[in-house]
C-alpha cells in the first residue's frame, strides 16, 4: 500500500517518512525448496547494499534454508515469523538485508 507512494519524493530532496515504507513482500508462497532461496537470492542481488527484502513463503523448510542461506552469503536475516495463513496453510515472513559489500 505505502509502497506505491515511494515515487512521490522528488530526486535531490531529503528522504521522507514514506520512503522508509516497505514495498510489498515478494510472494514465494506455494514454492518448494530450493525455489524460495533461489528466487530470494535473485531479488537480493538486484538490490542495493543495506536494502531489505521481505518475502512470504509456505514451505516449512524455508525457515532452516534461509538461516543457512544467511550464514553462507553474509546477507542478514533480520527477522522471520510464522503468520496466520489460510486454514491448513503455514505462512512464513522473512526480512533479509543485503550485505554491505557487493
Amino acid at each position: 500500500m505505502a509502497g506505491k507512494l515511494r515515487g512521490r519524493t522528488l530526486a535531490g530532496k531529503p528522504p521522507g517518512m514514506l520512503d522508509s515504507a516497505m514495498p510489498d513482500p515478494l510472494d514465494l508462497r506455494g514454492l518448494a525448496c530450493p525455489l524460495p532461496v533461489l528466487k530470494a537470492n535473485k531479488a537480493l542481488r538486484a538490490m542495493a547494499p543495506g536494502e531489505t527484502l521481505v518475502l512470504l513463503a509456505t514451505d516449512p523448510a524455508a525457515v532452516k534454508d534461509f538461516h543457512a542461506y544467511a550464514q553462507e552469503t553474509g546477507h542478514e536475516l533480520l527477522a522471520w515469523a510464522e503468520e496466520q495463513g489460510r486454514p491448513g496453510e503455514r505462512v512464513f515472513r522473512f526480512a533479509l538485508r543485503r550485505r554491505q559489500e557487493a
Binding site: 505505502a2 514514506l18 522508509s20 515504507a21 531489505t52 527477522a79 515469523a81
Partner: peptide
Amino acid sequence: HARDPLAQLR
C-alpha cells in the same frame, strides 16, 4: 511493532 510497514523493529 514487527508488522509495521514503515520500520523494521520487531
